[in-house]
Design a binder for these strands. Structure first.
Lengths: 163, 163
DNA sequence: GAACATGGCTTGCATGTTTAAGTAACGACG
DNA sequence: CGTCGTTACTTAAACATGCAAGCCATGTTC
């Protein structure tokens, strides 16, 4: 039962500001996509990931990892996208245990028309208000926190591009 | 229909890392609280806000704003906390339209015993991996993004301390 | 080649959140 | 005073999410 290492005033300041960011930035991006395209950020990221993948297809488990979501969540999300005609599913011919999610032509079109607005929002909210140097610092800061949260995770830049 | 201002490789890098942070940090803090205290981060923030308020009481709407949540969400959350005996509600004697949420003695005790673990987690995930200078930069960066997301919002340090 | 173990995905259930409708209290105007 | 409009909150229904159990295909062991 040791005396906890309380936060000082400056750290408290940082934490409150960061906490606000953690809530408001995702919600703002979600709102833009919901309003302009009728899809959630998670659904957009899912389709965007597929659009960058070879053959525009990917295994469910890989897709879930890329989008930082659980497998059941991804299963439901892809189910919704499938119902709207933007994705279809088929067993992996290589190994029937895997399921391939495939972006349809309509899905690719949807990503194409949704991307500009989303990128614009991201730029408006994140990059426009920061200097180049601050953006770089943000990368380094985020990497450090990510490593502290989950040491297993690969956070360096070896992830294939999505956006 | 103008050509969108796409993100360059460096910006993409920043965005992916930040996106990971936005998902994983809240979820890690939530997990710690759920595991060690059986409450969510939102519930903790609610009780912590009350514990710092005069009379350990606050109007629902003010509480919801402080915790960055909607009013219905706060209503449900306080309902759960009330059922567990940590909070009680009473109409504001000044104006019957407001409802005052009041932290009970048991609730105060709960915050007291939960706070050290939560602060420790916050320190481990956020402050330990950063230098003092980086923490300061993070404050400034978060403020700028918050201003871009919601210009109305008061993000400078004029908020009363909670944690 | 038949039983079993493994791993990937889906489904069902319990919980929490959002949106919208409903309730109650206050103030203003006639 | 009585009604109207506004404000603060709660409740109801639709929906999304995590967890645990089930299902199916594969590879292994004998």
């Amino acid at each position: 039962m040791e005396e906890p290492r309380w936060l000082d005033a400056e750290e408290l300041q940082t934490w409150y500001t960061l906490a606000g960011l953690l809530v408001r930035l995702p919600s703002a991006l979600d709102a833009q996509l919901q309003r302009d395209a009728g899809i959630s950020l998670f659904e957009y990221q899912t389709m965007a990931s597929l659009s960058e993948a070879p053959e525009r297809s990917m295994r469910m488990s890989h897709l879930a990892m890329l989008a930082e979501g659980s497998l059941p969540r991804m299963s439901q999300a892809v189910g919704r996208l499938e119902k709207r005609g933007w994705v279809r599913r088929t067993p992996d011919p290589t190994d029937g245990r895997f399921t391939l999610a495939i972006l349809t032509e309509a899905g690719w079109e949807k990503v194409r028309e949704t991307a500009p607005g989303h990128v614009e929002a991201t730029r408006t909210y994140v990059f426009d208000p920061l200097t180049r140097a601050q953006a770089r610092q943000l990368t380094e800061i985020s990497r450090r926190i990510l490593r502290a949260v989950d040491p297993e995770s690969r956070c360096p830049g070896e992830r294939p591009a999505i956006d």
